[in-house]
Design a protein around this nucleic acid. Structure first.
Length: 285
DNA sequence: CACCATGTTCCTTG
DNA sequence: CCAAGGAACATGGT
């Protein structure tokens, strides 16, 4: 599920449910999720603490907290890996099959589930150092992007996945943004023209903004929510209320062989740096 | 059985 | 030393 838009949608869902709450008992069902590898240390730091803010940086959720009875504050991070999901639900609800961490919140329970187990809970904020600009902030401009691409002979698609270039872009939105900017994923990153940098900067902003807006308008899906969580891919897919197909409509991602929505030629798929890339060879060059 | 999967990190190769 | 490629991580869906 988790590139910047999905993480941001989840942040908006969690913030009003967690900010101000006091953390009760914490249970870790999969120790490798915790970093550093000390479940006891995590519990020591967080149990009894109050959540003061739920933020986001790139693909990380950022939790600020105030330890019980003390005036200091701390931060811990959550990364959802490929299949991580979270929800605050009634404590009486049965735990999902792939639960990795739970936090008691009185009547409620905060549940982190992750089928593949690539997600992480990390004490401290060190993992954020070196991360590139937030693509939806004013800090992310065409010239900043151009500076990050300068001298690179990597294909632009591969370069976009580097979190130190720009934070939060993943495999889906890298392909989507390049399609919108009409740039070939093959193109050497350092050889984009100034105009292409401007178009790519704008395209990234647009595809991410639109995905956040769409996701914010839909109910989240969790694996053990009634009637939801069946797609296994994204938080937001179909609207269970009216059954309408309200999921993301990608232009190229996952559409190999389907006609380009602009020119009708078949969307191509190939592998770059071990990941699938999707593009229209007619519209992008 | 084969292949695919939203991510990151580590190791090897050039 | 750096960049690029591949494998690994662990599990499920098609």
């Amino acid at each position: 599920m988790p590139e910047l838009p999905e993480v941001e949608v989840l942040r908006r869902h969690l913030a009003p449910r967690l900010e101000g709450r006091r953390l009760g008992d914490i249970r870790c069902f999969k120790p490798r999720i915790i970093r550093p590898h000390a479940e006891a240390e995590l519990k020591e730091a967080l149990m009894g603490a109050r959540v003061t803010r739920v933020g986001r940086r790139g693909k990380y959720l950022v939790f600020d907290y105030q330890p019980a009875g003390r005036d200091e504050h701390g931060t811990w991070l959550a990364h959802l890996g490929m299949t991580g999901r979270m929800d605050v639900q009634p404590a009486s609800r049965p735990l999902p099959r792939h639960v990795v961490v739970t936090v008691d919140l009185g009547e409620d329970r905060w549940v982190f589930e992750d089928a593949r187990g690539f997600g992480r809970w990390i004490l401290g904020r060190e993992a954020l150092t070196g991360m590139g600009p937030e693509p939806l902030s004013e800090a992310f401009t065409a010239s900043v992007l151009a500076a990050g691409l300068r001298g690179s002979r990597q294909p632009i698609k591969v370069r976009l996945l580097d979190q130190s270039l720009v934070a939060g872009v993943g495999n889906i939105y890298a392909s989507e943004a390049l399609y919108r900017a009409r740039i070939s994923p093959h193109r050497a990153a350092g050889r984009l023209t100034g105009k292409q940098c401007e178009e790519l900067c704008a395209a990234l902003r647009e595809v991410l903004t639109e995905a956040v807006a769409l996701g914010s308008s839909l109910p989240l899906q969790f694996s053990n929510a009634s009637g939801g969580g069946t797609d296994g891919l994204f938080y937001y897919g179909r609207d269970p209320a009216d059954g309408s197909s309200a999921g993301e409509t990608f232009q190229v991602y996952g559409r190999a062989g389907c006609p380009c929505r602009q020119c009708g030629r078949p969307i191509r798929r190939w592998i770059q740096a071990g990941r699938s890339t999707f593009a229209c060879s007619g519209c992008q060059r």
